[in-house]
């Protein structure tokens, strides 16, 4: 267990920095976590984060990278449905890093 401090408020995370409580998530927390990952959030980053939130809302799991890539391509356009694009936004992996920023658990099977 660990804690992060955002705007004077404390949030529980696991030892890798993933939020413990999904409901704790908000845009400020996302920006803070992104900062700790050296990511400057742009509109393109938010598209993916919001997609992940919606996906989780519907299926209660974080998608595997392959599944995310395909689904992003369908939703946001084929040019964005590539691992180059997604790794460009999230260099340490769209699954691992984007899920962390989105306040979701690590995808199942993600090592």
């Amino acid at each position: 267990m660990a804690n992060i401090e955002v705007d004077g408020k404390s949030y529980e995370t696991d030892e890798e920095g993933y939020l413990i409580n999904l409901a704790d998530w908000n845009a400020d927390v996302a920006n803070y976590i992104a900062g700790t990952e050296n990511i400057n959030m742009t509109e393109q980053h938010w598209e993916v984060i919001n997609f992940l939130r919606e996906y989780f809302e519907e299926y209660q799991i974080a998608p595997a990278v392959r599944v995310l890539t395909k689904a992003i391509g369908k939703k946001l356009g084929a040019e964005k449905g590539t691992s180059e694009y997604l790794y460009g936004l999230f260099p340490y992996g769209p699954g691992k890093q984007a899920c962390k920023i989105a306040g979701l658990p690590k995808p199942t099977g993600c090592v």
Partner: peptide, 12 residues
Amino acid sequence: NFSPAYRALDGY
């Protein structure tokens, strides 16, 4: 409730 995940299988 993990039952919604069965609906995600198609995407997998």
